[in-house]
């Protein structure tokens, strides 16, 4: 230790002076770890309880409450939830709902990225009359979340005959301009000289977009995609209103159905409800975990 000590520090005084500081620091570190462990328990504890309880028999849960240990009925429960038909028609399975959720997440994310990139490209890189009008019209959508205009939106979609259709489900959700805004900010941060160099190199609007702008936006697109996939997957209110056809139910929408069945049941299928909750959270959670860095980047950048 002494060999490694700072040669500039006065040798005899150093250990005596350093010890209280080190001790205070160590104490602070321990305190921080305690806070964080408490936080991890707070955030992850409910998930653990949910998963563990889903592997128990509902009768046990009903009499003894939610469980922290493994109940051994993992395969049975999840097989039932995934493969056994349910709902009023008896045809809706967990697998189908998961698949529908994937479609909604992908459709929402891809649709939003494509549409908003094109619009942002027009707004930033073209000079044309009504450019600012177009910008403000799109901007206005930020002012009104779907939840506030839910009833008239429903009526419009109904009038267009788009109830129980994927376009009717996805398009109104895409109307908000968050991603357009983000791409606009991003495009503006790209140095002007790149466009100038590309023009001298003979690239027109199409070439510039395909050869330069899209490749440069790759990481941004990926980040937005992750966020939007999760947001799309997690949609609840709009799918709940829009889709009455059970074959279109997403897994998050399915939560509502569980509760309807639940009310009035003698011993509800707690395990199945909890398994469904796990299935509904697992895919987006995996996406967030696997692409953690990109996800954080996307979140922090888009919300800015």
């Amino acid at each position: 230790m002494t060999a490694l000590a700072d040669p500039l520090a006065p040798a005899p005084a150093a250990p005596a002076a350093a010890r209280p500081v080190n001790r205070a620091r160590r104490r602070a570190q321990i305190l921080h770890h305690i806070v964080l462990i408490f936080g991890v328990l707070l955030m992850c504890g409910p998930m653990v309880v949910t998963f563990m309880s889903s592997t128990w028999d509902p009768v046990v849960i009903h009499s003894e409450g939610l469980q922290l240990g493994y109940g051994g009925k993992f395969l049975e429960t999840y097989e039932t939830v995934l493969l056994k038909g349910g709902g009023f028609t008896g045809e809706i399975t967990g697998t189908l709902m998961l698949w529908n959720s994937v479609l909604l997440g992908l459709g929402f994310a891809i649709g939003k990225i494509v549409i908003s990139m094109l619009a942002a490209y027009a707004i930033v890189y073209f000079r044309f009359p009504f450019a600012s009008l177009a910008f403000w019209v799109i901007f206005a959508t930020l002012l009104l979340p779907l939840e506030v205009r839910i009833l008239p939106s429903y009526e419009v979609v109904q009038r267009l005959g788009m109830l129980n259709s994927w376009s009717g489900l996805i398009l109104p959700l895409i109307a908000s301009a968050t991603a357009t805004f983000f791409f606009r900010q991003f495009f503006r941060s790209i140095p002007d000289e790149l466009l100038e160099a590309a023009r001298i190199d003979g690239a027109g609007p199409f070439r510039f977009f395909v050869d330069i702008l899209a490749p440069l936006s790759k990481t941004m697109m990926a980040a937005i995609f992750i966020i939007m996939f999760v947001v799309g997957w997690n949609q609840y209110l709009w799918p709940a209103l829009m889709t009455t056809d059970e074959s279109m139910f997403t897994i998050v929408r399915g939560i509502r159905q569980i509760l309807q069945v639940w009310i009035g049941a003698n011993i509800p299928d707690y395990n199945q409800a909890l398994a469904l909750a796990i299935l509904a959270m697992a895919p987006p959670a995996l996406v967030v975990l696997v692409f953690q860095r990109m996800f954080i980047k996307g979140l922090v950048e888009t919300e800015k």
Binding site: V114, I115, S116, L118, A119, Y121, A122, I123, Y125, F126, R127, F128, P129, A131, A134, V137, I138, A140, T141, L144, R149, S153, V156, V157, L160, L171, P172, I174, A175, S176, A177, T180, D192, L195, E196, R199, G204, P205
Partner: peptide, 25 residues
């Protein structure tokens, strides 16, 4: 520097504007 006036920007904006008009405005 921007691309000069042409019909391209309107075409690019069309999808978003149509969706905004139908499902928002």
């Amino acid at each position: 520097v921007q691309f000069g006036p042409s019909w391209t920007p309107y075409l690019l904006l069309a999808p978003q504007l149509i969706i905004v008009a139908l499902f928002f405005l």
